[in-house]
Every structure is written in C-alpha cells, then in structure tokens.
C-alpha cells in the first residue's frame, strides 16, 4: 500500500516535524548531566493541590476541561448536518455510524440502543482526543517536588499530561458505566428479575457474581490507565535517553495515535459489552 498525502497534510506534517525539532534543540540545555538523574528525578511526581481534605490533580482538570471545550466547539461547528457532507462531517459520520452498528448489534433491548450509543461515543471521543493530545502534541511540563508543589514549569519539553493517564479519570468513567449498566438492567427487566440475576446459575454463586461485578470497573479502568501512563513513561524515558532528537517523533506517533486510538475504542466497546451483558 502506498501512502499519499495531500498538500495540506504535507504542510501540517512538516510544521509538526519542525516544531518538534526546534523544541528538541531548545530543550537540550535543560538536560541534566546524567540521564539517570533526569529520568528518575521527575518520574511519577505530579502537581497536587489540597482543597478541604481532597487531593486534586490540577493538570488533569485543566486538560480535561480543555478537551471538553474542544469537543463542544466541534459539535457546535457541525451542529447542522448538510446533505452533501464536507470532509470533516463525513469523517464524524463514519465514526458515529460504526458505533451505531456495533451498539445496535450488541444491545438486545431496543429502547436502550440510543442511550448506550450516546454513552459509548462520548467516552470514545473524549478518550481518543485525550490520548492523542497526551501522545503526540508537545505541551506543558510541570516539574514538582515530593510533596506535589510546583518547582518549575517548562513549555514544550514534554507531552501534554493526558487526563486518561490519571487513574481517577478512568475509574470515574468505569464506575459510571457500571452504575448505568445496572440502572438499565433494572429498568429493562424489572427489580425482581435483576435481583434473580445475582443468584444465577445457582445461589452458591452469589459471592462470585458480586466479586466479578466489582472487579469489572477495576480491570476496565486499569487497562486504559496502564496503556496510556505506561506509554507516557516510556516516551519520557526514551526522549531523554536519546537526547530528544529523532526517536521521539516516531515513538510519539506510535504511542499517541495507534495505542491511544485502539485503547479508546476498546474502552467504549467494553462499556457497550458490559451494558449488553447486564441487559441480556
């Protein structure tokens, strides 16, 4: 297969390449003497703010709100669907149509096809944009000390901190999916039938079913968190070890686009699967 780019895409890729190279050169003077100091000095430290006993992660909130604003802007721009679609509209339509077909196949109760479709696509769009922003685009890097206070803010020295690289975001979505699936099940089958479902296939299985249900959000959220946070750490270490020059571009592209999109897709497909398993 031969990959062909249009002129616009070529210009965009060239600008991205130049921007990454320039930021690489600018960041050479930030490098520590030994790579060990650089790599393990900042790993796993996040900017944390304590408000009323709650430990908040401001970068997750800022980037998350930014992504939501971006998605709302795109939705506003495409609020009127034209009969003859533009390129962006066709792209969005193809994504939504794929999801609608998957949801329509999976959900047995037709009343819940539309709400499930809305949940799945919203999750997919947010997570996909978040993974790409956290995987490809150079952004702000906040260096902190052990207690979570800011030590230094660097521009374009690292990628944006993705909200999905924070387990709190993923666990929120996974718990939301769990609660929604049970609410749908009660609405669809009635309370008694739903209660009976816990004692299937025999009453001895009740503890196993409870543990299995509680384990769903854990495995659901940890998969996404592990992939994105692990990818971010890997890119972080590799970029500093290679002097921030050639390899980062390739790895950013790979982890950002490929793994990010696949994980976003898997997350929303699993959400659909969990909801459909409760409904059937």
């Amino acid at each position: 297969m031969k990959v062909r780019f249009t002129k616009k895409e070529k210009i965009f890729l060239a600008i991205l390449l130049v921007a990454c190279t320039v930021s690489a050169f600018l960041n050479i003077r930030e490098l520590k003497k030994t790579p060990r100091e650089e790599v393990f000095g900042n790993l796993g430290k996040r900017w944390v703010v304590e408000i009323g006993g709650f430990r908040l992660n401001p970068m997750t909130i800022f980037v998350g709100v930014g992504i939501v604003a971006l998605l709302v802007f795109v939705a506003y721009k495409f609020r009127r669907f034209e009969l003859i679609p533009s390129r962006g509209q066709a792209f969005l339509e193809s994504i939504l149509e794929t999801f609608y077909e998957i949801v329509d196949d999976a959900i047995p109760d037709k009343r819940f096809v539309k709400p499930t479709f809305v949940i799945a696509t919203t999750l997919f769009l947010f997570i996909a944009v978040s993974n790409i922003v956290g995987g490809v685009v150079p952004g702000i890097n906040v260096l902190t000390d052990e207690n979570g206070a800011i030590r230094k803010v660097q521009l374009f020295s690292n990628l944006w901190p993705a909200p999905t690289a924070d387990w709190n975001t993923n666990l929120t979505y996974a718990l939301f999916v769990l609660i929604v699936s049970h609410v749908f099940a009660i609405k669809s089958k009635g309370f008694k039938e739903w209660l009976k479902g816990w004692f299937q296939p025999s009453p001895i299985m009740l503890p196993l079913n409870v543990i299995g249900e509680l384990a769903k959000p854990i495995s659901h959220s940890l998969r996404l968190f592990g992939n994105i946070a692990g990818g971010a750490i890997l890119v972080y270490i590799l970029t500093y070890m290679t002097g921030y020059f050639f390899a980062p571009l390739i790895f950013w592209g790979f982890f950002g686009i490929f793994v990010g999109l696949i994980q976003a897709f898997v997350f929303s497909i699993l959400a659909v699967a969990y909801i459909s398993s409760q409904l059937s």
Binding site: I211, G212, L214, A215, I218, R223
Partner: peptide
C-alpha cells in the same frame, strides 16, 4: 490477530482484577 491478543489480555486482566477485589474485601 490483534483481536486474539486482546482476548488474552482481557482474560488476564479479569482474573487479576477479581483476585484483587476478593483480596481487598477479605
């Protein structure tokens, strides 16, 4: 092939998450 790989990863994560939750409750 990616689907097969994903199936195995799903099995392993389900297993680990269940053991973790069981241990936590206990």
């Amino acid at each position: 092939d990616l689907g097969k790989y994903n199936m195995m990863v799903m099995f392993v994560t389900t297993l680990l998450a269940n053991i973790f939750v069981g241990g936590l409750i206990g």
